[in-house]
Design a protein around this nucleic acid. Structure first.
Lengths: 205, 205
DNA sequence: GTCTATATTTTGATAGAC
DNA sequence: GTCTATCAAAATATAGAC
């Protein structure tokens, strides 16, 4: 039950937002406390009143992300039809890429670098949850509802294809020749990924 | 025509290799010249004899990568059958992820951050080449050889799915519960992606 | 070509007045 | 809660002897 936002909460959020944008483009080590202070319109020492260190600001960003990643996974539920569940999962994931490209990029860089800022426990939770969802995919395959394939690698494909729209946004914009991605372009992304994936595991028609 | 490797070339390569590994895990700003010197087993000031700055070392790494990315694209050739061409492209891309995870990660982080270390020209070349290959896909679709879909977004899906094996290697290892990915695991990746993509655009059977 | 010593700048963090 | 002044450590890069 979240209580009302105190003044402190607002200031912390202000710092978090400023840090996110900087870290997404310059990386953790490339972001200076001075840059954060300027972006958050606060004097540098003030940051230390709200956070004990730069690392702690960064940690707060990372923990926020996992919640959304886990939330999207709810779509893969055993009581649903695979066609609808997987379509919705693709849509939710690309939708998240559209709405929250910045945290997505930070999380991606963190994984690429080797997740040394995430605890063993946090990494394990992702593993456990994935195993649970792999069992759902296997359940659907056993019922003959979809083609047989390796569920873990199937998820790697889904994650790679959907997160691409946030993480490699720059590449997409460059190739589509635009400064900003429109809703229509995200929609084409959703449609293309959905079409290929559904037909790809025998869920079309 | 590359001439024989001089002593200087060898030293420069030694520095490049050391820098690659460090940058892949700590990022450009997180890598210190001192770290590079130690990893390359050279005194720090010696680095400056071979390279004018840290940035220049990094630039050299980036330019090397593009060559391989472009090379893989040769698979998508209009005189081939789409089934073979796309299968081979997937295989070559994942194979590259297996053999060169380090440069792949560096390139990925660079794109995520917004490619500010790559020149306008370098980014444009990728765009032009992609347009050329999109025309090949369209050619196959017009001949009724494969299902209709947006070729650009189709490539985004392929890139996301194949590069995942290099860039998000850590995530894959964590979920598969292994310290190192085996050849067999990469093979399962190739098979899963190939199966889904081929069936996904009407190229199976 | 190599490396010791060091200049210069920047950075994360703190002390302590208001 | 806020912010001026500042410390101590670390970093890039260079000078110049060998």
């Amino acid at each position: 039950m979240p209580r009302a936002m105190t003044a402190r909460d607002r200031k912390e959020l202000q710092i978090i937002r400023a840090t996110e944008k900087l870290v997404a483009t310059r990386g953790f080590y490339g972001t200076r406390m001075d840059d954060i202070a300027r972006a958050a319109r606060l004097p540098r020492p003030n940051l230390y009143y709200y956070f004990p260190s730069k690392r702690q600001i960064y940690r707060r960003i990372l923990t926020g992300l996992r919640a959304d990643w886990i939330k999207a996974f709810e779509q893969i539920s055993p009581d649903r039809e695979p066609r609808e569940a997987i379509s919705d999962y693709i849509r939710v994931k690309i939708e998240y890429s559209r709405k929250h490209p910045v945290p997505s990029k930070i999380f991606a860089m963190e994984v690429i670098r080797g997740s040394d800022m995430l605890t063993e426990e946090e990494n394990n939770q992702i593993k456990t949850l994935t195993e649970e969802k792999c069992a759902v995919i296997e359940h659907w395959m056993n019922e003959g509802k979809m083609d047989r394939l390796d569920p873990r690698h199937f998820f790697f494909l889904l994650w790679g294809a959907t997160q691409y729209y946030a993480d490699f946004e720059q590449q997409i914009k460059s190739i589509l020749g635009v400064k900003r991605l429109t809703t229509a372009q995200f929609e084409t992304g959703v449609e293309t990924v959905t079409q290929v994936v559904l037909a790809g595991c025998g869920l079309d028609g």
